[in-house]
Nucleic acid binder design. Structure first.
Length: 306
DNA sequence: AATTTCACG
DNA sequence: ACGTACGTGAAATTA
């Protein structure tokens, strides 16, 4: 890796995490206490400030070491991390009612591999890394309100290839295309996009004469119900988790949320009970046409619990 | 004070 | 012909 980029990467870790976080330890509790903002985002997600605990590194080997700093309250506790698997694509499958996408999830398939198999007309176990990567890019793009240019920019493929990939995608999942068009049409009519729980995002530019401005609003019309309904679901789950923990008089506590994940400081004696509570609450928060998959892990720090 | 860069989902 | 991926926050840099 070039020396300047390496320096910048390490400097980011040093300034944003290593040196900043210890300053925010509360002298009474000995812990860091973030603030979760309930009314900041456009889609209904939470955000986190002072410090932001929703952007602690995990992707890079050196960055992920930061997660070792996040530990249970004492040696009677262990961290439990539970995260929704592919929540946004599952919500897309539900909202669009696309049969192929619903079936892939019902069969518990690797959605990117399954998509690749369909796009490139090969058997799932013949999908190459390259093909899976392209399918993954397309699946991400769909959630964002895809454009050929955007997909090409992000994957490095040519504009032409990106366009062809999107065409194949819509042949593979025809009702996803129909849902996207319907989302835009509905937003034009109503002036807003809406989540499963009825949260509205007003889109003042949805009928703008400026194509660029309108295009952005159209992508918002597609993305907001997806991202926002995911936020609805985890919030319903969190309320249920907290209620149940208190009803049962447990000592375990929910301590963090990172958009599709909740982290519990779990009393070791309660771990099986808590796992069941978290799993049930997350899976059943909002019943959909597709089942929700939840991955859970425990560990003596946040890195281990992943 | 606004913009850029980079960390996350 | 045009210009484009969704949602955030913190630190550093630019103006």
């Amino acid at each position: 890796m070039p020396a300047i980029l390496e320096f910048r990467g390490l400097n980011k870790l040093l300034n944003t995490y290593v040196e900043a976080l210890p300053k925010l330890v509360n002298s009474k509790t000995g812990k860091i206490h973030t603030s979760y903002n309930q009314a900041v985002t456009a889609t209904g997600r939470l955000s986190s400030t002072n410090p932001n605990l929703q952007n602690i590194p995990i992707r890079d080997d050196k960055g992920k070491i930061m997660r070792k700093a996040f530990i249970p309250s004492d040696d009677q506790h262990i961290l439990l991390a539970a995260d929704y698997s592919q929540i946004e694509l599952r919500i897309m499958a539900h909202l669009s009612e696309d049969e192929a996408m619903l079936e892939a999830f019902q069969n518990d398939e690797d959605i990117h591999q399954s998509t690749a198999a369909k796009l490139f007309k090969v058997k799932p176990d013949e999908v190459t890394r390259e093909q899976r990567g392209q399918a993954k890019g397309a699946n991400f793009g769909i959630i964002y309100g895809i454009s050929a240019f955007g997909l090409a920019q992000n994957t490095g493929m040519s504009n032409k290839d990106a366009k062809a990939l999107i065409d194949s995608y819509f042949e593979t999942y025809p009702k996803v295309k129909a849902y996207m068009d319907a989302s835009i049409a509905k937003a034009r009519e109503a002036g807003y996009a809406e989540t499963i729980m009825g949260r509205k995002r007003f889109l003042k530019d949805i009928n703008s004469a400026n194509g660029v401005v309108r295009g952005a609003a159209e992508r918002n019309a597609i993305n907001a119900p997806i991202q926002g309904s995911s936020a609805d679901m985890i919030k319903v789950a969190m309320v249920k988790i907290n209620q149940t923990i208190r009803e049962q008089g447990l000592k375990s506590r929910m301590i963090m949320q990172v958009h599709d994940e909740v982290i519990i400081d779990a009393e070791k004696n309660e771990i099986e009970k808590v796992k069941n509570i978290v799993l049930e609450s997350m899976q059943k928060a909002i019943p959909l046409k597709v089942k929700m998959k939840v991955d859970m892990n425990t560990g003596n720090d946040w890195l281990e619990a992943h």
